Computed example of a mutant assay.
Amino acid sequence: MNKLVGIDSRVEQVIRLIGFGQNDVRYIGICGMGGIGKTTIARIIYEAIQTQFEVTYFLSRVRETCEKHDIVQAQKELVGHINGSLTGFSNEYDGRRIIRTSLCHKKVLLVLDNINKEKQLKNLAEEKDWFGSGS
Protein backbone atom coordinates (compact mmCIF):
# COMPACT_ATOMS: atom_id res chain seq x y z
CA MET A 1 0.00 0.00 0.00
CA ASN A 2 2.91 2.28 -0.73
CA LYS A 3 2.58 5.47 -2.76
CA LEU A 4 -1.17 5.94 -2.38
CA VAL A 5 -1.95 9.54 -3.27
CA GLY A 6 -3.93 11.53 -0.70
CA ILE A 7 -4.28 8.70 1.79
CA ASP A 8 -2.08 10.06 4.58
CA SER A 9 -4.37 12.94 5.52
CA ARG A 10 -7.39 10.61 5.66
CA VAL A 11 -5.54 8.13 7.84
CA GLU A 12 -4.43 10.92 10.21
CA GLN A 13 -8.03 12.20 10.49
CA VAL A 14 -9.34 8.80 11.54
CA ILE A 15 -6.47 8.16 13.95
CA ARG A 16 -7.30 11.48 15.67
CA LEU A 17 -10.91 10.30 16.05
CA ILE A 18 -9.74 7.12 17.74
CA GLY A 19 -8.58 9.21 20.70
CA PHE A 20 -5.69 7.23 22.10
CA GLY A 21 -5.35 7.63 25.85
CA GLN A 22 -9.09 7.95 26.33
CA ASN A 23 -10.75 5.25 28.39
CA ASP A 24 -14.05 5.23 26.57
CA VAL A 25 -15.23 2.81 23.89
CA ARG A 26 -15.47 4.32 20.42
CA TYR A 27 -17.24 3.31 17.27
CA ILE A 28 -15.96 4.99 14.12
CA GLY A 29 -17.68 4.57 10.76
CA ILE A 30 -16.16 5.27 7.37
CA CYS A 31 -18.95 5.79 4.85
CA GLY A 32 -19.00 6.54 1.15
CA MET A 33 -19.48 5.23 -2.34
CA GLY A 34 -17.87 1.97 -3.37
CA GLY A 35 -14.33 2.15 -4.70
CA ILE A 36 -13.19 5.32 -2.92
CA GLY A 37 -10.73 3.59 -0.57
CA LYS A 38 -12.67 2.97 2.65
CA THR A 39 -11.27 -0.54 3.09
CA THR A 40 -7.77 0.63 2.21
CA ILE A 41 -7.89 3.38 4.84
CA ALA A 42 -9.28 0.98 7.44
CA ARG A 43 -6.59 -1.62 6.65
CA ILE A 44 -3.74 0.93 6.88
CA ILE A 45 -5.02 2.21 10.23
CA TYR A 46 -5.53 -1.32 11.54
CA GLU A 47 -1.98 -2.31 10.62
CA ALA A 48 -0.57 0.87 12.18
CA ILE A 49 -2.29 0.66 15.58
CA GLN A 50 -3.08 -2.99 16.24
CA THR A 51 -0.16 -3.46 18.65
CA GLN A 52 -1.84 -1.06 21.10
CA PHE A 53 -4.76 -3.45 21.73
CA GLU A 54 -5.20 -6.72 23.55
CA VAL A 55 -7.52 -8.27 20.95
CA THR A 56 -7.53 -7.25 17.29
CA TYR A 57 -9.40 -8.49 14.27
CA PHE A 58 -10.20 -7.22 10.78
CA LEU A 59 -13.42 -8.96 9.76
CA SER A 60 -13.63 -8.40 6.02
CA ARG A 61 -16.50 -8.83 3.58
CA VAL A 62 -19.26 -8.86 6.21
CA ARG A 63 -21.97 -8.09 3.64
CA GLU A 64 -20.83 -10.86 1.32
CA THR A 65 -20.58 -13.39 4.15
CA CYS A 66 -24.10 -12.56 5.30
CA GLU A 67 -25.51 -12.76 1.77
CA LYS A 68 -23.77 -16.06 1.00
CA HIS A 69 -24.34 -17.66 4.41
CA ASP A 70 -25.83 -15.65 7.27
CA ILE A 71 -24.81 -13.48 10.22
CA VAL A 72 -24.04 -16.59 12.28
CA GLN A 73 -21.17 -17.40 9.91
CA ALA A 74 -19.67 -13.94 10.47
CA GLN A 75 -20.12 -14.35 14.23
CA LYS A 76 -18.40 -17.75 14.12
CA GLU A 77 -15.45 -16.26 12.22
CA LEU A 78 -15.08 -13.53 14.84
CA VAL A 79 -15.44 -15.90 17.81
CA GLY A 80 -13.03 -18.36 16.23
CA HIS A 81 -10.38 -15.66 15.97
CA ILE A 82 -10.95 -14.33 19.49
CA ASN A 83 -11.04 -17.70 21.22
CA GLY A 84 -8.68 -19.61 18.92
CA SER A 85 -11.30 -22.25 18.14
CA LEU A 86 -14.75 -22.50 16.67
CA THR A 87 -17.63 -22.52 19.08
CA GLY A 88 -20.69 -24.58 18.27
CA PHE A 89 -23.60 -22.18 18.21
CA SER A 90 -26.33 -22.07 15.62
CA ASN A 91 -28.20 -18.82 16.11
CA GLU A 92 -27.40 -15.11 16.25
CA TYR A 93 -28.53 -14.75 19.88
CA ASP A 94 -26.03 -17.31 21.18
CA GLY A 95 -23.41 -15.74 18.93
CA ARG A 96 -24.02 -12.31 20.47
CA ARG A 97 -23.73 -13.73 23.98
CA ILE A 98 -20.46 -15.51 23.19
CA ILE A 99 -18.96 -12.45 21.48
CA ARG A 100 -19.92 -10.25 24.45
CA THR A 101 -18.43 -12.72 26.94
CA SER A 102 -15.25 -13.13 24.87
CA LEU A 103 -14.57 -9.40 24.47
CA CYS A 104 -15.78 -8.02 27.79
CA HIS A 105 -13.06 -6.31 29.84
CA LYS A 106 -10.54 -6.47 26.97
CA LYS A 107 -9.10 -3.56 25.01
CA VAL A 108 -10.29 -4.41 21.51
CA LEU A 109 -9.67 -3.14 18.00
CA LEU A 110 -12.37 -4.61 15.80
CA VAL A 111 -12.78 -3.58 12.18
CA LEU A 112 -16.00 -4.69 10.54
CA ASP A 113 -15.52 -4.11 6.83
CA ASN A 114 -18.36 -3.71 4.37
CA ILE A 115 -21.31 -3.56 6.75
CA ASN A 116 -24.48 -2.58 4.94
CA LYS A 117 -27.23 -3.40 7.46
CA GLU A 118 -27.78 -2.33 11.04
CA LYS A 119 -28.50 -5.96 11.97
CA GLN A 120 -24.91 -6.91 11.07
CA LEU A 121 -23.48 -4.34 13.46
CA LYS A 122 -26.01 -5.30 16.14
CA ASN A 123 -25.00 -8.97 16.00
CA LEU A 124 -21.23 -8.40 15.87
CA ALA A 125 -20.66 -5.41 18.17
CA GLU A 126 -23.97 -4.09 19.47
CA GLU A 127 -23.21 -2.47 22.79
CA LYS A 128 -20.24 -0.51 24.07
CA ASP A 129 -20.30 -2.59 27.26
CA TRP A 130 -19.24 -5.60 25.16
CA PHE A 131 -15.74 -4.06 25.12
CA GLY A 132 -13.18 -3.03 27.68
CA SER A 133 -12.10 0.58 28.15
CA GLY A 134 -9.93 2.07 25.44
CA SER A 135 -11.51 -0.08 22.73
Rank of each mutant, 00 (worst) to 15 (best):
S133G: 10
K106W: 08
C104Y: 15
G19S: 10
A74Y: 02
E92S: 13
S85L: 08
I82W: 07
L17W: 12
D70S: 14
A74R: 02
Q73H: 15
N83C: 13
I115Y: 02
N91F: 03
G134C: 11
K76E: 12
G34I: 05
R16Y: 04
R16V: 00
S85G: 07
K128V: 07
G21I: 09
H105W: 07
F131Q: 11
Y57K: 09
L124N: 06
G37P: 04
K107T: 13
I18S: 05
N83H: 06
Q50P: 01
R10W: 02
G134V: 11
Q22F: 07
F20Q: 07
G6E: 10
N123H: 15
V108M: 08
A42W: 04
Q75A: 05
E12F: 00
D113A: 04
Q73M: 12
N123S: 09
E118M: 10
R96T: 11
R43E: 12
D8I: 01
L78D: 07
K107F: 07
L110Y: 05
Q73G: 00
E127P: 01
Y27K: 03
F89I: 03
L17E: 13
A48W: 00
G34H: 06
C31I: 10
L109D: 09
F58S: 02
E47D: 15
Y27E: 03
R63G: 00
G84E: 06
L78P: 05
I44P: 00
Y27H: 02
Q13Y: 00
E54V: 03
I30L: 15
F58K: 01
